[in-house]
Computed example of a mutant assay.
Amino acid sequence: MGGKLSLSWKTPVQKESEDKQILPRQLDDEDEIRDYASISDSAMSCVGTACRSYVNCPTCQGTGRIPGEQEKQLVALIPYGDQRLKPRRTKLYVCLAVTTCLLTTSLSIFFLFPRSITVLPAGLNASSVGFNATTTSIYLNMTNVLNITNNNFYPVAVVQLDIEVLHQSLVVGKSTMKALLNMSPLQSGQIFYMVVSRIVDDNTYNICTWTKVKVHNVLLHIQGTLTCTYLCHSEQLAFEDYQYVDCRGNATLPRPSYHRLP
């Protein structure tokens, strides 16, 4: 018992020395905390004196701050493995776009490319003949047929037809017709036109009136110009034909066949 009491019992002088060793350490920690708080408070006050507004930094999850005027200069970083950075079927879309453009252009050129309009004289359809013995002249009224073929993929309108009839290099008749025909794409049509001719020639008059002559034909050279419009464009097509017309007397006989000289 004497040993135990000697260990737990201490003199007042020893207790004071122990208290002096413990209290300074506690005071030192409190002083450090107080000093840190004073430093942080002074930093806050310095920042406050700068008169600048601050916002929480999104990239730091609110732990950092930047000047308010730099808020719109923030840049969002995307991870390299993000799916938004990986193209999805870009090559397929580019190929489809290029193919569509090429196909559309090719079809437009194919369908809108101007093709020829075929004009083919079909010969004499009917004729009537008159004579004037005083002037030895022949009045010849002819109705001819003109075949027209539209080889385009758009409609064509025939707006005017100009005809000249020549006999022995002399113009004996003229005719002009307007607003004749509207043709659909890849369609054909016919135009019937009439020309009144007056031939003043003694030899021709004798050939047509003599009964001893078995063949009463007059060779006429027909020249024409056909004006067509399509796609806000006007085009003139020239044609010519040679016809043998029976001038023995009045006749209204269809003659689909005709003789054409080279």
Score class of each variant (00 low, 15 high):
G2E: 13
W9L: 04
T11C: 06
P12N: 07
Q14A: 09
D19A: 13
D19R: 13
K20L: 08
R25N: 08
D31Q: 02
D35K: 05
M44T: 09
M44L: 15
S45A: 14
V47R: 04
A50F: 03
V55M: 06
V55S: 00
C57I: 04
P58I: 00
T59L: 05
Q61H: 10
T63F: 02
I66S: 04
P67G: 08
E71A: 13
K72H: 10
K72D: 12
Q73H: 12
Q73F: 07
Q73I: 04
A76K: 15
L77F: 02
Y80V: 12
Y80W: 07
Q83W: 11
R88D: 01
R89I: 02
T90A: 06
T99E: 03
T100I: 06
C101W: 03
T104I: 07
T104V: 13
T105L: 07
T105Q: 08
S106V: 15
S108Y: 14
I109P: 00
F110M: 13
F111D: 10
F111R: 12
L112Y: 13
F113R: 07
P114E: 08
I117T: 14
T118M: 14
V119A: 11
V119C: 08
S128W: 01
V129F: 02
I138M: 12
Y139A: 05
N150D: 04
N150V: 05
N150S: 07
F153R: 05
F153N: 14
A157E: 13
V158S: 03
V159P: 00
I163H: 06
V165Q: 03
L166F: 07
H167G: 02
S169Q: 09
L170C: 01
V171A: 06
V172C: 11
G173D: 01
K174Q: 03
K178L: 00
L180Y: 09
L180M: 11
N182S: 14
P185I: 04
P185E: 09
F192P: 03
M194S: 09
V195N: 02
V195D: 00
V195Y: 01
S197A: 10
S197T: 07
D201K: 08
D201S: 10
N203R: 14
W210L: 15
W210G: 15
K212M: 11
N217S: 11
L219T: 10
C228G: 09
C228Q: 08
T229M: 12
L231R: 14
L231E: 03
C232T: 01
L237A: 01
F239W: 13
F239I: 01
D241G: 02
Y242M: 08
C247K: 05
N250L: 13
R255M: 13
R255L: 14
H259P: 05
H259W: 10
